[in-house]
Design a protein around this nucleic acid. Structure first.
Length: 698
DNA sequence: AGCACGCCGACT
DNA sequence: GTCGGCGTGCTC
């Protein structure tokens, strides 16, 4: 019998292992099997294929035990795992076991039996039905139109409708969430389960509260990595047993077995968090779309600024798109709230600071505008995408800079605890009193992060209460919630933050948003930088004027050296469509997604030569195959943007293909050879290697 | 990945 | 004499 066990690719155990069993167990059954000297959890897989290498019968070990009472994982779940494994070039066992609750993988049959009994007891009680059902908000005409278009997608009955992927393109504040909830309600009414995905854990509690208020009496569970192992197991079980009606989760939730699945929603589908950035680098958004097709269930992708891939897929063929998704549009903000007026502030016209004098934190006009807000009792949000006090320290005498000894990066000066911290490897030291190189006492910060901006704003506007939200102050559990609550309570006049404040939070009294230093993205080498920046700025703008009473005078300020840049011009008009068109044109000319398909072969080694040496030979191994398949380009290996992290050198090689199937065929056939090659390169200093299919950054 | 076996340096 | 460093190799 074929059983999948958890084993990374490089272990060489790529396929299922063969075990003896007295009776045939259905595929999808969880078992415990002996592996080497230990016993591990495994998953019964399909019958062996004809070409599977047979293991000598006398060497087969028997299955140790079966986890009782656990319904087998359904065929569609196994197909999703099979697809993810093949598409992202990871072993079946790794994917299958990775997407099960960690707790489940650790229990033996006895422990599991006990847990299951306790679980079923607690599952028996349905949630208390509330006495007063929520009053539904009136739908805007746009919401109504969209819901009408979505109606047939769930119609039960004889003529099975073709499953469709929808792009719900709605501006920030257009009421996308209400559409999700109404459509979810339809699915629930039809007796189906709903999978609702959000990009970040941060955003689950507030959405969960809203979902719970709407669907009182329904079983709603969340699934994300912030849960305790016991909670995660419980919620997963509820979903798998068909007892949970709504699963609310982050990217890992895409693999939740749902026997009655009727709708998948991917909120903020453009968000990079949907792509796993280590291990099996899957895109939960793309897998959600696949899963929808597989299970014949509609998938609703929502965004104000869709990823260009999704936009292209939703663009009709007549307009040069792929016409694969159906596009639904909601351009207006709910409740007359207008988007804030965008003001581009030309930094080149600002007076230059006198020599030796520091530039003011913000241009005077922007500072005045914020002061005005403070005086009126309104709030402002100032965005700077760089945490810490200063990105680097420098000695004024010998020119020493605070370089990380383990990485090719500067260590960031954090003034609050007087540390130098590497944002790549985490190495932290107290900031030196004097220059470590020459002993000079005058070492000064270069540049500016959120800490310094907070300090400068407090100094420039002594009457204002300045607060800050970034990854540093929200590290502790509950800290983000506390900070947000204090902003909501009006205890903060000016909120300084990184991109994390731009996402989703519903600030009622912010009437001014300012992007302090957004230009870097305009000239970044990363081809997705502009797309991400546009999404971020538009999302940030959406934080202002959420309350119609203050929307009128709300503003979005952009401090820039390039006020006429097309990105800002499009932002000023809130013209995503124009921006997307421009970007698509550029991508087509440059042969980039969605017009080309990419994979990145990444290598890490003790030396840069070790990493690149592997890549060079890896390229040689597939050159002939690439030529045979055609339309495939292998780029020369290069060091990654941050070349060294924690004393490991990193390099990468881009593979570009005109067609996705060709790329897939290449990778499928190359992986075994690369595995063997990596084995040879191990003694030569290769540490790790991996393929990243559809990489976000190149 | 685990977890072995295996062959060389500083300790009860 | 052992405890333990992590290099190499295997798991149906």
């Amino acid at each position: 019998m074929q059983v999948l066990v958890e084993a990374p690719q490089h272990s060489g155990l790529t396929g299922p292992l063969d075990y003896l069993a007295d009776q045939a167990l259905p595929p999808g059954t969880l078992v415990r099997v002996p592996l080497g000297r230990r016993t591990v959890t495994g998953l019964v897989w399909d019958a062996p294929t004809a070409d599977a290498d047979a293991w000598a019968a006398d060497q087969l070990k028997p299955v140790a035990e079966v986890l009782p009472d656990l319904p087998p994982l359904p065929p569609t779940w196994r197909q999703l795992v099979r697809f993810a494994s093949a598409y992202y070039q990871r072993s079946l066992g790794e994917i299958a076991m990775m997407v099960l609750p960690p707790e489940l993988r650790q229990l033996d049959a006895v422990q599991w039996g006990r847990r299951f009994k306790r679980l079923t007891k607690s599952l028996a009680q349905p949630p208390a039905a509330t006495d007063a059902p929520e009053v539904l908000p009136d739908l805007t005409p746009e919401q109504q139109t969209v819901l009408d278009a979505l109606a047939p997608s769930l119609a039960p009955g004889d003529a099975e409708p073709a499953p469709t992927t929808y792009l719900l393109w709605g501006s920030t504040g257009s009421g996308k969430t209400e559409v999700y909830l109404r459509q979810a309600d339809r699915a629930l009414q039809a007796g189906r389960q709903v999978l609702l995905m959000v990009p970040e854990i941060n955003l689950t509690p507030q959405l969960e509260a809203r979902v719970a208020a709407r669907f009182a009496g329904r079983n709603i569970v969340s699934l994300h990595s912030g849960l305790t192992p016991a909670q995660r197991l419980r919620n997963w079980m509820l979903a798998h047993l068909g007892l949970a009606d709504i699963v609310l989760g982050t990217r890992l939730a895409v693999f939740t077995p749902l026997p009655r699945l009727g709708l998948v929603v991917v909120d903020e589908e453009h968000d990079p968090s949907y792509k796993q950035q280590d291990g099996a680098r899957y895109s939960a958004r793309d897998l959600a779309v696949y899963r929808g097709q597989l299970e014949k269930v509609p998938v609703l992708l929502g965004s104000a600024t869709p990823s260009l891939e999704t936009w292209f897929n939703a663009l009709p063929q007549a307009e040069g798109g792929a016409g694969r998704y159906q596009r639904l549009t909601m351009p207006s903000r709910v409740g007359q709230g207008a988007m804030p007026r965008v003001r581009r502030l030309d930094l080149s016209r600002e007076p230059k600071p006198r020599p030796g004098q520091e530039a003011p934190p913000l241009a005077q006009a922007l500072l005045d505008a914020i002061a005005e807000r403070v005086a009126r009792g309104e709030q402002s949000l100032v965005l700077l995408n760089r945490r810490g006090y200063a990105p680097v320290l420098q000695c004024s005498d010998c020119g020493w800079k605070s370089e990380c000894p383990q990485c090719s990066a500067w260590r960031v000066f954090h003034k609050v605890d007087r540390t130098l911290r590497c944002h790549h490897c985490g190495l932290t030291d107290r900031v030196p009193r004097a220059c470590p190189n020459c002993g000079n006492l005058d070492i000064h910060p270069l540049g500016r992060g959120t800490e310094k901006l907070e300090e400068q704003l407090a100094a420039a506007l002594p009457d204002a209460r300045v607060g800050r939200i970034d990854a540093d102050v929200t590290k502790l559990k509950g800290a983000l919630e506390d900070r947000l609550a204090s902003v909501h309570a009006g205890e903060v006049d000016i909120l300084v933050g990184t991109q994390m404040v731009a996402k989703g939070h519903d600030f009622r009294r912010i009437t001014l948003v300012a992007a302090v230093n957004p230009d870097a993205a305009l000239f970044a080498s990363d081809f997705r930088a502009a797309e991400r920046q546009f999404a971020l700025l538009l999302q940030a703008a959406g934080r202002a004027g959420r309350d119609a009473s203050v929307a009128q005078g709300s503003e979005m300020w952009v401090q820039t050296w390039h006020p006429d840049h097309p990105l800002y011009a499009a932002l000023a008009r809130y013209d995503y469509e124009f921006f997307a068109q421009q970007q698509l044109k550029e991508r087509q000319m440059a042969g980039l997604p969605p017009y080309a398909h990419l994979a990145m072969l990444r290598a890490e080694g003790k030396t840069q030569e070790a990493a690149q040496g592997f890549l060079v030979e890896a390229a040689q191994l597939v050159e002939a195959l690439a030529a045979e398949l055609g339309g495939i380009l292998l780029y020369p290996p290069v060091p990654t943007a941050v070349q060294r992290v924690a004393n490991i050198e990193r390099a990468q090689m881009l593979i570009e293909a005109e067609s996705r199937p060709a790329l897939q065929r290449l990778l499928a056939r190359a992986t075994d050879d690369w595995l063997a090659l990596a084995h040879q390169h191990r003694p030569r200093g290769l540490v790790r290697w991996a393929v990243d299919v559809d990489p976000l950054a190149i």
